[in-house]
Design a protein around this nucleic acid. Structure first.
Length: 591
DNA sequence: CAGGACACTTAGCACATCCTTG
DNA sequence: CAAGGATGTGCTAAGTGTCCTG
């Protein structure tokens, strides 16, 4: 063990050194002058996207059966059958929509003969293919350390080759340099297109974007790119059109890149600007609640929700293309219930709808009388399925907002309210006298307040109850140990008093016992704090707000103020992403 | 001014890896 | 040193919002 300990220490040293080096080499783009409007780069060079491996046909001893009879499928049909087989353990392969979409798309990949034969999904037996897949997963899990290392090194090689680009003399990490592999589409929630075949992307589908004078990426042998363009007003390196929704997918830079960082910084600056005029805007929409024009009133109520509840804008969506989800402007009659009285409050609006990612938004909110009255008015003569705000959409709403402040759109309110909530909560919850663990609990609680505001939910971890019980058991054990340590300390003190001379062994024993008690108490507190934190976090995801809504400068300033190392709240990736904020933020930063 | 093309941010989940602990 | 939990990463879907066109 001595050897390994040294090795560990050495590895740690190396890591620190590497990080320091990285820090030295970091491109401090935030100290440079910005480019003229619209220009994103002057020079861009990269290797193009990395393509997933070709389909490997199943071995001859693995068979597919139709209606009990062995059928050798064509390569294309087989590949799609394998996609389905791999998912058989998932509940969604039992769903009607999924199965129908899959079967329809699968038949398109079949040969004429196959299509004539295979007419009923229920008569298909994928059992052997499924078993083969499971065996493969198992085998991968059971690989030896050496095998795993070989795999890891191979992956690293790919990253080294395709994972970086050269942007204006600086090496930047690419966020997603891999082309998405083919498979069966699984949308979130009740997606009408679930089960459809997501097709394999060929170089012929891919547009490359780079500098004219750079070394142009070479397509895989025997292939050519769809197009090579040199557009420095956009940030993507490659793009293709995906076949499920017909939308464009992009290969872009990592969050720690200049292009992403600068945009992020800008976002928070816009939100800070809103801070300076939010009072006026609020007064205005409160006035507008009384407007003669229905349009204006609807806009005012929508803004009230967006501001108070941090709802998303709610763009229109094409029916049948996506799951039925809504945001503020697209709320329908059935999504709210009005209560004149509820739980001791007046004028309560009960929201119940599916938002982005089909995450449920459920909230009971007391609102001001004028808003409540307006809502009643909007609901008059409407049926479930009708729009609540029939004279409003995100385009007109955003047009109005931009007229109030340049750059202002609905989403800025989410950023603003999230960041301002964090700042105010941190102020309220943090005590200077607390230790680091307690301060971190305060930070997490402030973070949590934001996550709740923004409705960032997660499925409770599968192992939640168990791990909670385990922690509680540890706490109980620690309590016992503490009690024991305390009695021992008492005894030692007693012994020292009765028979010890001042500097005897007994005296030092007292000191040691004292230290033991203290250590025990600290450990107990830490665990208890951890338990509270975890319990409160059961169904709440903190990451999304931390990464996308909270001005990092608030957190950095808080760390400096309360002497909490910034590594305690941001991991390595997050520190890289927020390097600009960590570098430039002073103790006195105010959002 | 609607509709579509486009570009970019935001989102949760599955999986990989790391770390602790018995 | 393995098990099991915590933490971090990759993936890609699902939003927002702008711009252009007819």
């Amino acid at each position: 063990p001595k050897r390994t300990k040294e090795e560990i220490a050495e590895a740690r040293q190396l890591k620190i050194k590497k990080e320091e080096e990285e820090e030295q080499n970091r491109w401090r783009w935030w100290e440079e002058e910005k480019y003229e409007d619209g220009v994103k780069w002057k020079f861009l060079e990269h290797k193009g996207p990395y393509f997933p491996p070709e389909y490997q046909p199943i071995p001859d001893n693995v068979n597919f059966y139709y209606d009990g009879k062995k059928v050798k499928l064509s390569l294309l049909a087989e590949e799609v059958a394998v996609f389905f087989s791999q998912m058989l353990d998932h509940e969604y392969t039992t769903k009607k929509v999924f199965r129908e979409n899959f079967f329809q798309d699968w038949r398109k990949e079949m040969t004429h003969e196959e299509r004539l034969l295979i007419k009923d999904l229920d008569k298909c037996n994928f059992g052997e293919i499924h078993a083969m897949h499971k065996a493969k997963v198992e085998a991968r899990k059971n690989m030896t350390k050496e095998e795993k290392l070989v795999l890891k090194e191979a992956n690293q090689k790919i990253v080294n080759e395709y994972g970086y680009c050269l942007l204006d003399h600086h090496k930047e990490r690419i966020g997603n340099f891999k082309i998405e592999p083919p498979g069966l589409f699984r949308g979130r929630g009740e997606h009408p297109k679930q089960g459809m075949l997501k097709k394999r992307i060929q170089p012929e589908d891919v547009i490359i974007n780079c500098s004219k004078e750079s070394s142009i990426p070479v397509p895989p042998a025997g292939h050519h790119w769809k197009e090579i363009r040199h557009d420095n007003t956009v940030t993507w390196l490659a793009s293709w059109t995906e076949n499920i929704q017909g939308s464009i997918k992009y290969i872009m830079l990592n969050a720690n890149s200049k292009l992403k960082g600068e945009k992020d910084w800008e976002k928070y600056e816009v939100a800070r600007k809103l801070k300076t005029c939010v009072d006026g805007i609020r007064n205005q929409y409160l006035q507008d609640l009384k407007s003669k024009e229905m349009r204006t009133r609807q806009r005012a109520v929508a803004l009230y929700f967006i501001d108070k509840l941090a709802l998303r804008a709610g763009n229109e969506k094409e029916e049948g293309e996506t799951a039925d989800t809504v945001g503020c402007c697209s709320l329908r009659v059935e999504h709210i219930t009005l209560h004149d009285q509820l739980d001791g409050s007046e004028c309560v609006v009960e929201f119940d709808f599916l938002g982005k990612d089909s995450i449920r938004y459920y909230n009971k909110v007391p609102v001001i009388k004028k808003v409540f009255k307006n809502l009643k008015l909007f609901l008059e003569n409407k049926q479930p399925g009708d729009e609540l705000f029939d004279r409003l959409n995100t385009i007109t709403l955003n047009k109005h907002l931009t007229s109030l402040m340049p750059g202002l759109t609905a989403k800025v309110f989410r950023t603003y309210n999230a960041s301002i909530t964090l700042q105010q909560q941190l102020k309220e919850l943090t005590n200077k006298a607390d230790n680091v663990a307690e301060k971190l609990l305060s930070y997490n609680r402030a973070n949590r307040a934001v996550a709740i505001l923004c409705n960032h939910q997660r499925a409770p971890p599968k192992t939640f109850e168990q791990s909670m019980a385990n922690l509680q058991a540890k706490i109980d054990a620690r309590k016992e140990k503490l009690a024991l340590a305390k009695t021992e300390l008492k005894q030692a003190k007693k012994d020292a008093k009765t028979k010890g001379s001042p500097d005897s062994k007994l005296q030092s024993l007292v000191e040691r016992k004292k230290a033991a008690v203290k250590r025990c108490e600290e450990q107990l507190l830490k665990m208890e704090v951890q338990a509270t934190d975890r319990e409160e976090n059961k169904q709440i995801a903190l990451g999304t707000s931390k990464l996308n809504y909270l001005d990092p400068r608030i957190s950095v300033a808080w760390c400096k103020n309360f002497e909490v190392p910034v590594e305690k709240i941001y991991n390595k990736t997050q520190r890289d992403k927020f390097a600009w904020a960590i570098d430039m933020t002073e103790v006195d930063f105010v959002f």
